[in-house]
């Protein structure tokens, strides 16, 4: 069973009809991805709880699923709403619009005339050297992703880690494509700066 088979009209019809075996397949294949998304916003135990609650909510709402997005997009939206509810109970509110101006992590590397002052180093993420430091770099990237503002971290997760398209991300977060692009650019330049620094110094 591949993910594309979970999105065919026939399969969606089975889900809407309350076919429990079809729902079990959905859980089997999508749960790990949904948990990955929830973990970007919540502690591991809370993330598990949010996804479990989402399955219950989705199960109750499936008969009303209109198929205007993919099932995965619809489920991701439910998971993020569950996560936001949990956060709200903890007194945290996520702002998805890129209102706060954290700027561009590479801004300091350009001269006043807009050309490189400190150009990128040459590095690769494959090959023997990269293998030697793979675990350290992975750990370091995770640390930096954790430290990003919630909105940047979530857009990076949905686009670059999960590979969702821009339309789906706009639908999930209720923000415009241009805001998704701004957040993604900020998140990517932060990571680029980190990898460059790591390659130069061997430090996170």
């Amino acid at each position: 069973m591949s993910e594309s088979q979970l999105e065919t009209p026939d399969f969606v019809e089975r889900l809407r009809d309350g076919d429990r075996a079809a729902f079990a397949l959905l859980v089997k294949h999508y749960h790990p991805r949904l948990l990955g998304t929830a973990r970007r916003l919540l502690q591991p135990a809370d993330a598990e709880e949010a996804v479990q609650e989402s399955w219950i909510a989705a199960h109750g709402a499936l008969a009303r699923f209109e198929g205007r997005s993919t099932v995965l997009t619809w489920l991701t939206r439910i998971v993020i709403n569950q996560a936001r509810m949990q956060l709200r109970r903890q007194g945290r509110e996520i702002q998805f619009d890129p209102t706060e101006d954290t700027g561009d992590a590479l801004a300091h590397r350009f001269r006043g005339d807009g050309h490189w002052q400190t150009p990128p180093l040459t590095w690769t993420l494959h090959g023997p050297d990269a293998l030697l430091t793979r675990d350290e770099l992975k750990h370091c990237m995770e640390k930096h992703i954790d430290a990003m503002p919630d909105n940047q971290r979530l857009v990076l997760e949905l686009r670059d880690i999960q590979g969702l398209d821009f339309g789906a991300i706009c639908n999930i977060l209720d923000i415009s494509p241009s805001n998704v692009r701004v957040l993604l650019h900020r998140a990517r330049t932060r990571l680029f700066q980190l990898v460059d620094h790591f390659q130069e110094t061997g430090e996170c």
Binding site: P32, W123, I161, R188
Partner: peptide, 19 residues
């Protein structure tokens, strides 16, 4: 080139193993 490699690298982190 390196930004492309970086996003490609991130894509490979997706959890794919079903439950």
């Amino acid at each position: 080139r390196q930004l492309d490699a970086l996003t490609e690298h991130l894509r490979q982190q997706t959890p794919v193993a079903p439950l």
